[in-house]
Design a protein around this nucleic acid. Structure first.
Lengths: 108, 108
DNA sequence: TACTGATATTTAGTATTACTGACTACTAGT
DNA sequence: ACTAGTAGTCAGTAATACTAAATATCAGTA
């Protein structure tokens, strides 16, 4: 699926939050999980801008750990604020996607 | 639902295309239809930037008609390119929303 | 007549967000 | 030494929705 980047705006951050919520993880791995999900064109730089934003907004806790496979990793976990943010995200998503599907199914 | 504007990015244009595809309409009315749909905070300015973009990209045909209720209206209809653009939009939407729901439902 | 409100379009400027592309750095294997 | 895979950072760009104001038309009313 090409050129979906504009439609990912606003949802990609929520996806990253969801992935982190399942357990401690780091940027590079998050990128690969998003690619596996189907968002094949997502690159490291994009994910890092998102994790930076999460840091700045104090939605995640951070722990730096060494890796035998390369340079040290920055592991993220959701804190309480992040958890709440994630719940709000899913509420917004349910709202918007239901409205758009309503439009799509010509029920309106 | 407050503060959903970032999540509307990339989908609002598709919604406008869909609304136009159902029959000749104009900016002010499109705004009201979006509000009725549930996107209550959408304002005229937003819709006009979208219709301007549709014009610029040659996705719509335009006809100006007088109104008894106020100044003349600019009516839009989808042309062939617009129709195709709309179909592509729905394909992208189906792809993205299915992937995100997959993530949400923890099936991945 | 002047005023208000609903209708209708336009536009300059701003904020947010994802992408691009490059750079740095560590480790293992050849 | 060199390469590839892993891992993080950052300056700059493009796209898009919102803000806020200006302009214009018409109906109703005090």
């Amino acid at each position: 699926m090409e050129n979906i980047t504009e439609m990912l705006k606003g949802v990609l951050e929520g996806c990253v939050l969801e992935i982190i919520s399942r357990g401690e993880t780091y940027g590079y791995e998050i990128t690969h999980q998003l690619r596996e999900l189907g968002f094949t064109d997502v690159v490291e730089g994009t994910v890092y801008t998102i994790t930076m934003r999460l840091e700045k907004n104090n939605l995640v806790d951070i722990e730096k750990k060494p890796s035998t496979m390369g340079p040290p990793r920055k592991f993220y976990t959701l804190n309480a604020a992040g958890q709440e943010h994630l719940e709000v995200f899913w509420k917004k998503w349910d709202f918007i996607s239901s409205k758009i599907n309503e439009l799509k199914d010509k029920k309106n």
